[in-house]
């Protein structure tokens, strides 16, 4: 398959899945009148104390099985952020198959930057 088609496909599928998850999460929030131990009024307040920093991964995983709205919205956001990462990962593979060494190197650097931003820097900043 050619690169344009596959990359276009990755981006589109990622966007669709994440939006469906977010919509489902919104629906659950309003049905359950809240989520993740916050009331709907607290969550929807524009100055809400609820943020991504005070919800743990375990909480999200448990929330998925208990149909918690916030957990589904967060899962949707994670899928959205993961989509460009997947797109870069695929490009590394694609250029490797084409035997284009320079572009394997370039895309690998972009991937490395992304992974550092996602996994290393937040960890360092937290420990400061």
């Amino acid at each position: 398959m050619d690169a344009n088609k596959s990359i276009g496909w990755i981006l589109r599928i990622g966007a669709i899945i994440s939006i469906l998850l977010i919509l489902f999460g919104m629906f659950l929030l309003f049905i359950n009148n809240g989520g993740s131990n916050y009331t709907l009024t607290q969550i929807t307040s524009h100055k809400s104390k609820l943020s991504t920093a005070n919800i743990s991964t375990t909480q999200i995983i448990n929330g998925i099985s208990s149909l918690d709205g916030i957990s589904y919205i967060i899962l949707g956001l994670i899928v959205l952020i993961a989509t460009p990462v997947l797109r870069v990962l695929y490009s590394v593979y694609f250029f490797a198959r084409e035997n284009n060494k320079l572009y394997v190197f370039i895309t690998a650097i972009v991937l490395l930057d992304l992974l550092i931003a996602i996994f290393v820097i937040p960890f360092i900043m937290k420990s400061l």
């Binding site: 966007a15 939006i19 919104m26 969550i43 609820l50 991504t52 460009p84 931003a117 937040p122």
Partner: peptide, 30 residues
């Protein structure tokens, strides 16, 4: 997409992201 994803992860960890507002905005903008 890639540029924004780089920043998002750090915003996320620092708590500059409110899932409800971000989710609703994503639905609207899309």
């Amino acid at each position: 997409g890639v540029t924004a994803a780089t920043g998002t992860a750090i915003y996320w960890e620092l708590g500059y992201m409110q899932p409800f507002i971000a989710g609703a905005a994503a639905i609207g903008v899309l």
